[in-house]
Computed example of a mutant assay.
Amino acid sequence: MTAARYCSLTQAPAPAFAPGLAAERRAALAGGRRMWVNGTVLHYCFLDGEADGSVIPVPGTGQTRWVPWAGAEEQRDVVRECFREWQELGIGVRFTEVDDRSEAELRIGFQWGDGSWSAVGREALRCGAHDRTTNFGWDLTAPGERATALHQIGHLLGMLHEHQSPHAGLHWDDEAVYAELAGPPHHWSRDRAHHTVLRTLDPDEANGAVWDPQSIMQFAVPPGLVLEPEQYRGGVHPPGTLSPADKEFVLRWYPPPDPPRPSALVPFRSAPLGLGPGDQADFRIDPPETRDYTVGTFGDGDTVVVLFEERDGEPRYLAGRDDGGTPDNASIAARLVKGRRYYVRVRLYSAWGSGGTAVMCW
């Protein structure tokens, strides 16, 4: 049996879609609801303050102890290098390290023994301001463990586990999987093992239309856990690097930024979107006066709308709204300040009515 360590991805609540939602709308939402809008700058920080940690039980004593989330500099360096590797693909999402957690959408801890896990894509925004969005639970400098950091960043970009793809066609020996993961170093329950390994994703959730056994999101599987296909009875052995399909996935969702400046969104003047499914439109707002504004969409479409404020030359996330799967339109209320610049990014999941869609600031 192997001592391989697996990502213990947390289980996110299933989206609550309206009853009777058309299949094409559900499919578009399943594939896109976890993804960031392109052009987002994701700020990350390493948690190391005195209050950054967890109270955990001491087995067999009835007592607890405090475990800090701080990580050694050599551990942080591995994570920094892996952020750079994803960034250097030329994707339209950027990563910037900050010291202030209040400025960070991504907050990284190193609690040994708590497993390695991450929020998936925009789920990170639902984590509390003092909570981790990512944890590394073992030594990233050990041989082969750099892949753990690449894997967790893949989750942060919206990728799911590749071995759970419906296109994999893997026939597991379920009881062998449960037994393997019930022992050290995981000690997982059957529910956790099922959620993280055996559960099959919906086709619209999968990272790609075919299974990629070389993906950084594919677990290394030891012999004896897969019954079929026969060639994988000896295990699945991904190289621990970004595969061509991994790169294609992120570049499809986050293409390199388009050099032209975003169109101006003038108060009380609607701007037609003219988007196809998965497309995005970007706008800038230069407020003529300081006051409370509302930015919102109109029309029969499922959209996500995100508002950013430009600070020190880069967009900072202010607020976002997602109307996917509802009869409503997304709107954001915010106080905009004259002399500052703001950006509005709108991505369309799908248009489900006969009319067009538009965005307006008022």
Rank of each mutant, 00 (worst) to 15 (best):
Q231A: 10
G20Q: 02
A319R: 09
T61P: 00
R252K: 12
I108N: 01
S270M: 08
D286K: 09
A14T: 11
A16M: 10
L227G: 07
R26F: 06
R126K: 15
M1C: 12
W117P: 10
G313V: 01
R192K: 12
S54K: 13
Y6K: 03
V359T: 07
G144N: 13
V346I: 15
F17C: 02
D300P: 02
R107E: 06
V78K: 03
A119V: 03
G31A: 15
R122W: 01
Q11W: 10
P259I: 06
D282H: 10
H187A: 09
G183H: 12
T10E: 11
K338T: 15
I332R: 00
A23N: 07
P259L: 00
N207L: 08
G154S: 04
E162R: 01
T61M: 08
A28G: 07
T64M: 11
R101S: 09
G90S: 08
R233W: 10
R269L: 12
R34N: 07
E73W: 11
G60T: 03
G296K: 09
G356Y: 04
E205C: 12
D246P: 06
G278D: 08
I91G: 02
V266S: 05
P19R: 03
A209N: 10
V346L: 12
G31C: 02
D212Q: 07
T96V: 15
V98M: 07
D282C: 14
V344I: 15
P244G: 07
R341Y: 03
E289H: 08
V93S: 05
P213D: 02
G301M: 08
T10Q: 14
R252M: 00
L318Y: 05
A27M: 04
D48K: 09
G113A: 08
S116H: 08
G32N: 13
V306I: 15
A271T: 07
H187G: 13
V177K: 04
T2E: 12
R233K: 13
Y343E: 14
A119H: 01
V41F: 10
A220I: 04
P59K: 04
F298I: 09
I153E: 09
G299Q: 02
A149M: 02
A193I: 01
G278Q: 04
R199F: 07
S270W: 01
G137F: 00
R252G: 13
R316V: 14
E85R: 14
R25T: 03
W36H: 08
V58E: 11
S165C: 12
R233C: 09
A358V: 02
Q231E: 11
L275G: 00
P288L: 05
E81T: 12
A14D: 15
A351K: 09
T196Y: 01
V221E: 00
T64L: 04
F268H: 13
E230L: 11
G240N: 06
P19I: 00
N38D: 14
R26H: 04
P19C: 01
W117N: 05
Y342M: 04
S354T: 11
D300V: 03
V210M: 12
S350K: 08
R291N: 07
T148H: 01
R335G: 14
